[in-house]
Structures are given as structure tokens and as C-alpha cells.
């Protein structure tokens, strides 16, 4: 078995030491730092980008909140304005209605006054006419001429009893 040939041990071990030391120095000084650098750079980049993304997300949320707030403000402002307009319209309508009602009341009062006037006048005429009719009736029936004052008093008394 060639593995047990002791004379080959020395050259194998010598070259193993030489090549392995070379390997170690190439790895430790050149190859591994390069890989580590690239991996670190990538990790840093990823972390940076994640941080940036988080910051942008916060910013976007703030912008959305501001938008919502301004929207709500605009909405409430618009509602207020609409309310003012409606109130004004309501007030104007109420005022117009009031005026109209007052005007109508006044006309109604006038009309009632006129009616009362006419009624009074008619009632006054009725007394006179009744006195005339009563006087004429008494004269026709009894042939007695009654004086006006007595007739008037009698009529007034009769009317009061009615």
C-alpha cells in the first residue's frame, strides 16, 4: 500500500505545509476579506433601503393623515357655509311670511272694521226703519198718531229685549 511507504511522508508533509500556508494566507488576506466586504456592503445596502422604505412609509402616512384632515376641514367648512345659507334663506322666508301675515291681518282688521261699520250703520237704519214702520202700523191700525219720541223709545226697548 503506497500510503504506508514511509519514504514518501517527508515530501508530502513538506508540500502540505507549504501549500496549506499559502492557502491560508491567500484566504485570510485576499479572498475572505473580499467576500466579507461584498456581503457587508449588500447587508448595509439592504438595511439602508429598508430604513428608507420605513421613513417613506411614515411620510406617506403623514401625508395621508394631512389629506384626511384637510378633507374633513373642507367638509365641515362646506357644511357650515351651507348651514349659513340655509339659515339665511329660512330667516328671509320667515320674515316674508311674517310680513305677509301682518299685511293680511291688517287687511282683515280693516275689513272687519268696515263690516262692523256697515253693520252698525245697518243696525242704526233698522231702528229708524222700525220706528217708521211701527209708527205707520200704529197709525194704520188704530188711527192714532203717536209722537216720534214714544215710538223711538218703544222700538229701542223692543230691540234691547231681542
Amino acid at each position: 500500500m503506497p500510503q504506508l511507504d514511509v519514504t514518501t511522508f517527508a515530501p508530502q508533509i513538506v508540500w502540505l505545509v507549504i501549500t496549506f500556508l499559502a492557502m491560508y494566507f491567500i484566504m485570510a488576506k485576499v479572498a475572505l476579506p473580499r467576500i466579507a466586504e461584498v456581503l457587508d456592503e449588500r447587508q448595509t445596502r439592504i438595511d439602508d433601503n429598508l430604513a428608507k422604505a420605513a421613513a417613506l412609509k411614515v411620510e406617506a402616512e403623514q401625508a395621508a393623515a394631512a389629506y384626511e384632515q384637510s378633507l374633513a376641514e373642507a367638509r365641515s367648512k362646506a357644511q357650515d357655509e351651507v348651514k349659513v345659507v340655509i339659515d339665511q334663506a329660512n330667516a328671509a322666508q320667515a320674515k316674508a311670511q311674517e310680513e305677509l301675515a301682518a299685511k293680511l291681518d291688517k287687511k282683515l282688521a280693516e275689513a272687519e272694521a268696515r263690516i262692523a261699520d256697515a253693520k252698525d250703520k245697518a243696525l242704526a237704519n233698522i231702528t229708524e226703519v222700525s220706528a217708521d214702520v211701527a209708527k205707520a202700523t200704529v197709525e194704520k191700525l188704530s188711527g192714532v198718531s203717536v209722537d216720534d219720541a214714544a215710538v223711538n223709545a218703544a222700538v229701542a226697548k223692543a230691540m234691547e229685549q231681542n
Partner: peptide
């Protein structure tokens, strides 16, 4: 006084170091 002959084993070792170094350094 030590036999430090360059043998086929040494060729394989040198080749291994070379291949690993090329693989890692040129790969990066």
C-alpha cells in the same frame, strides 16, 4: 537533509490552492 521532492501529490496540492483561489477571487 529533508526529502522535499516535488511529487504528483504536491502537484495536486498546488492545483487545489490555485483552483480555490481562482474560484473565490475571480468569482468575486
Amino acid at each position: 537533509g529533508i526529502d522535499a521532492s516535488f511529487t504528483n501529490s504536491a502537484v495536486a496540492m498546488v492545483a487545489t490552492v490555485a483552483v480555490v483561489s481562482i474560484f473565490l477571487i475571480m468569482g468575486m
